[in-house]
């Protein structure tokens, strides 16, 4: 099985007529995902790769004839909050926000509304999630053919703050004969809908998942939160972590941001060194080299 997505998951794309959204829609359809509609205000009646376009989420739901499971939101930053509110209040429970550069206040408001309504947000600033050979929601892995090359089904759950590294790591697991249960690009911003610890219960409940790999960076507290979760929940899942951006610990890099908006060292606790120590204290194996991940997973699975 998998987390959050399955063979029957239906979703819409908000902002579907944008250039990137058109590509993403093609990719998802080719992969076998059920894209049941798209929304771009003022463009009702059009089609994008055979997917009907509506003015509102409510119209898409009505056309579908029942609740829609998810939405991929690709609208510009100034309109994202409204689009996400619209999705949530029309009963959509899984929202992938691709858009970058959304102010934190807006993200926090979306997350708070999602909590009230029992919806889950992945992102912002992410590529979405994929269940190999079953469903892909978002641009993750690229065109269907490329995604198939990088993602084979298997026992490892992947969570990553970098979209590109989600695929790089999954590909190495696939090449090593391990494969992936579900891979989630969680997003690179300082505030995101679903941090590692918030997705752990889903993986914990998924029978197929036997181990977890996370890709992480300096900045923020979500690694500390994961370490706490692991300590408090006696998880059955071994975790292997890779930390990028260790060079940012250097004195001359202090206060600078690299890579993602959330990747900035603001205090002692969010340096790479400090995070590695915390993760290790919780029994999480932190590998030094990116290519040590598959072997470390195999070792954990054998133990």
């Amino acid at each position: 099985m998998s987390i959050l997505l399955n063979r029957d998951t239906t979703f819409i794309v908000q902002g579907i007529t944008g250039r990137e959204a058109v590509n993403l829609t093609r990719e998802c359809l080719d992969y076998g995902s059920k894209v049941v509609g798209g929304v771009t205000p003022g463009r009702k009646g059009r089609e994008v790769h055979g997917v009907p376009v509506f003015d509102t989420v409510a119209q898409a739901v009505e056309h579908h004839g029942g609740p829609i499971d998810g939405s991929v939101v690709t609208v510009p930053p100034a309109f994202t909050k409204d689009a996400v509110f619209e999705a949530i209040l029309n009963g959509i429970k899984l929202i992938v926000i691709v858009t970058e550069r959304i102010p934190r206040r807006d993200v926090a408001q979306m997350v708070e509304l999602a909590e009230i309504e029992g919806a889950r947000i992945i992102g912002p600033n992410c590529l979405g999630l994929i269940v190999p050979d079953v469903c892909k929601m978002g641009g993750i892995g690229g065109p269907a053919r490329d995604a198939a090359k990088s993602y084979a089904p298997g026992p490892v759950g992947v969570m990553s703050r970098s979209g590109g590294m989600t695929t790089e790591i999954s590909s190495s697991l696939t090449q090593a004969g391990l494969g992936v249960s579900t891979a989630v690009s969680i997003g690179g911003d300082a505030i995101i809908g679903s941090a590692y610890a918030e997705l752990m219960p889903y993986f914990e409940a998924d029978e197929e998942t036997q181990a977890i790999v996370i890709y992480t960076e300096p900045g923020g507290r979500m690694e500390a939160q994961l370490a706490q979760w692991v300590a408090a929940n006696d998880s059955r899942l071994p975790i292997v972590a890779f930390m990028a951006g260790k060079f940012m610990d250097d004195e001359e890099m202090k206060g600078m941001s690299f890579g993602h908006a959330g990747t900035i060292v603001e205090g002692v606790e969010d340096t790479a060194t400090e995070k590695i120590a915390r993760l290790e204290a919780a029994g999480i194996r932190v590998v030094e080299r990116i290519d040590e991940i598959p072997a470390a997973v195999k070792e954990k699975l054998a133990a």
Partner: peptide, 12 residues
Amino acid sequence: GAGGGSLTLTDA
């Protein structure tokens, strides 16, 4: 290239 890739490669 790319945020995460650049961090990983600079470290490497």
